[in-house]
C-alpha cells in the first residue's frame, strides 16, 4: 500500500510526465476535451431550442431510422477497424496497419456519402436553414449545422487518416502517430453517439 502511494506521488514530482504518456498524446486528449465542448455548446443550444419551441417537429416523420442505423453501423465499424490498425501498429505489423487504415477510410467516406444523401433528400423535401415543412424553423438550422459540423470533422479525420496511411506505407510513421490519428477518429465516432442519440432518437 505504502509503495503504491509513493509511486503515485512520484508521478507529480517533475522530471517525467505524470500520466506516463507523451505530451503529444496529452495534447490530443486536451484538444478532444475542448473540441468536445464545442459540440456540447451546439447540443446545449439545440436542447434549449427544442424545449423552448412549442412546435418542434416529430422526428419519426422526418428521419428514416433504418438508414440512420446503417450510417451508425458504418461509423462504429470504421472505429473498430481503426482500433485494429492502432493495435497492429503497436505490434509493428505494417501490412495489417495499411489494410485496416484503408478500411477505415472507406468506412468514413461511405459515412460522408450517406450523410450527403440524407442532406439532399431532406433538402428536396423542402428543409433549409431558414424553414422546413415540418414545424419550428430552427429545426432545419440545428440539423444542418450540427450534422454539418460533425461531417466536417469526419472530413478532416479522413484527411488525417489519408496522410497517416501514406506515411505508414512509406515507413515513416511511428505507432504513437497512428494512435493519435486513431484518437481523433474515435472522437468523431464519439460525437456521433451524442448526435445520434440526442438528435435522431430522442
Amino acid at each position: 500500500m505504502e509503495a503504491a502511494i509513493e509511486t503515485r506521488e512520484a508521478y507529480w514530482e517533475g522530471g517525467r510526465g505524470p500520466f506516463g504518456i507523451g505530451w503529444s498524446k496529452l495534447m490530443m486528449w486536451l484538444f478532444i476535451v475542448t473540441d468536445g465542448l464545442v459540440f456540447a455548446g451546439f447540443l446545449a443550444i439545440y436542447g434549449f431550442l427544442r424545449i423552448a419551441s412549442p412546435n418542434w417537429p416529430d422526428r419519426s416523420h422526418i428521419f428514416h431510422l433504418d438508414f440512420i442505423a446503417l450510417m451508425t453501423f458504418t461509423l462504429i465499424t470504421s472505429s473498430a477497424t481503426m482500433a485494429t490498425a492502432v493495435g497492429a501498429a503497436r505490434k509493428g505489423d505494417r501490412k495489417t496497419v495499411g489494410r485496416f487504415l484503408a478500411l477505415t477510410i472507406v468506412g468514413g467516406a461511405a459515412f460522408l456519402g450517406m450523410q450527403a444523401y440524407e442532406w439532399s433528400s431532406l433538402i428536396r423535401a423542402g428543409a433549409t436553414l431558414e424553414a422546413n415543412p415540418w414545424g419550428a424553423p430552427l429545426f432545419g438550422a440545428c440539423f444542418f449545422i450540427i450534422t454539418g459540423f460533425h461531417g466536417s470533422h469526419v472530413l478532416s479525420g479522413l484527411i488525417v487518416l489519408a496522410i497517416t496511411m501514406a506515411r505508414s506505407a512509406a515507413g515513416k510513421s511511428r505507432p504513437a502517430g497512428i494512435e493519435l490519428a486513431g484518437l481523433y477518429w474515435h472522437f468523431v465516432d464519439l460525437v456521433w453517439v451524442f448526435v445520434f442519440t440526442l438528435f435522431y432518437l430522442i
Binding site: W12, G14, G15, G22, W23, M27, T34
Partner: peptide
C-alpha cells in the same frame, strides 16, 4: 493547450506540483 501540457509534463526534476 500548450501551457497545460507544459506545466504538467515539462517540470524539471524535483519540481513537484
Amino acid at each position: 493547450l500548450n501551457f497545460v501540457c507544459t506545466i504538467l509534463d515539462q517540470r524539471t526534476k524535483g519540481m513537484s506540483l
